[in-house]
Design a protein around this nucleic acid. Structure first.
Lengths: 239, 239
DNA sequence: TATCTATACTTGTATAGACAAGTAGTATCG
DNA sequence: CGATACTACTTGTCTATACAAGTATAGATA
């Protein structure tokens, strides 16, 4: 039987065939993909080879598999890359926390109407509000503002944020179940300009997050200073 | 021999053992990891099982493998999130390509000194230069400028970019081996303002990429229009 | 009718063996 | 001494088989 003739791998042919069927519309979201056994027959391959193909497609997020049930075309994700923003967001947040920081606001207050709407609260409710400016030496790196539903983290205001970063603390007490991220370039208002010590019209990177934890919402807005030292950059190697 | 007793999988035990050795410092970056055959013996497993463990660790970026040579501990990456920017970059690039586009520049030209330095070329060399503005209906979504070493993709200028996106074409002819990404907020120059039909001082998201392919460099600069429809946003679910 | 059971499917894990293909070092030959 | 061939080792792919474990359905049973 066909052994390793290798230009190119059989498992890759199976993968590409399935992807082709998905992209051509022949297989639509939630449609059943041929089983390992069927694919193996179709391509004159062993089940292990079909298994490898489907396993990799699962990792790539194109299909979904359930033991005992079958393999199905994955529903298109709301921006595949967005999953990955999550960890970038965490990295940005953590990076701010690693340096010295100055706490500007750390108190409980009445919600404004705007905030109430965004966070699904009544106007009579109160929220925790924190503003922290993270510095790297004399340079202000980021401006970080949070609004947190007290029910999510009742002891948020009592924490010592020199010992634990806010994001680590919140992750600990309230697992994030759902999140929304917006990355954009902004001109920030005069107050933030003052805190970050930047000129008007200096464009800043803004990362806004809304996270859900058991139907309770928390918002986090990070404004990152311009300047070369704060660019998000790096290298990577591949095969 | 041990069959599927399954709490928990053997391949996972091998993975965790290797990770433990890396994290404890027993195995340092560039150190040799036991071969598949050795691991198989150590864990009373078959070579295929050890192979699966090492293959997954490769995908997770913890080890590096070379056919005929061996398996080695990967050097710590400069910012784990940066790997992930890669795919965001691709998503942004692809997303532009899905809509109608207007090609402004598509030609071979002499390199400027600045470019020559960045791309490791001599001032007498020529490069391919392309500027494409991607539109979504009447609205300009992104301004995409590339400088490509002709040796990387000799037929770049002859492509029909209505049939294949530039990034897909380049990926096909030249595998990216190394890349550098910079995401930042910028004010763009008057020319780009004109093409994107935006006001001065409207902050834009800039994504700059330098990619290496067999020591040859290509650069790609993407300027993303401001405006709510072009924000990078989304939701995700987690177990 | 409601519930259990057999069975026929699925995916998940694992094995033992095979050949292909790349690399590094050693031995040999001119 | 230098080029070549050989060998021992590595990873990459593939097969054929096996059993475990989850699910759905049809048929038998209470």
């Amino acid at each position: 039987m066909a052994r390793s003739e290798q230009p190119f791998a059989l498992y890759d042919k199976i993968k590409k065939s399935v992807v082709r069927d998905i992209e051509s519309g022949k297989l639509k979201p939630d449609d059943r993909v041929p089983s390992e056994t069927q694919l193996a027959k179709m391509f004159n391959a062993s089940r292990m080879t079909a298994n490898r193909a489907l396993k990799e497609l699962t990792e790539e997020g194109r299909i979904v598999r359930a033991q005992g049930v079958g393999t199905f075309v994955a529903r298109p994700k709301p921006g595949a890359a967005l999953l990955e923003i999550k960890s970038i967001a965490k990295e940005i947040a953590d990076w701010g926390g690693m340096h010295s920081s100055q706490i500007l606001v750390l108190k409980e207050e009445k919600v404004t109407e705007k905030i109430a709407q965004k966070m699904n609260l009544k106007p009579s409710d109160t929220i925790f509000h924190s503003i922290i400016v993270h510095k790297d030496g004399d340079i202000c790196v980021q401006y970080s503002e949070r609004f947190i539903n007290p029910k999510v983290a009742p002891h948020y205001l009592e924490q010592d944020f020199k010992k634990i970063t806010p994001s680590d603390y919140l992750l600990e007490v309230a697992p994030v179940q759902e999140a929304e991220h917006i990355i954009e370039a902004v001109n920030c208002n005069r107050e933030i300009q003052k805190y970050l010590k930047i000129q008007p019209n200096e464009p800043c990177l803004s990362l806004k997050r809304r996270t859900w934890s058991f139907d309770m919402v928390a918002t986090h807005s990070i404004i990152i200073s311009p300047g070369s030292r704060y660019k998000l950059m790096g290298k990577f190697m591949r095969g």
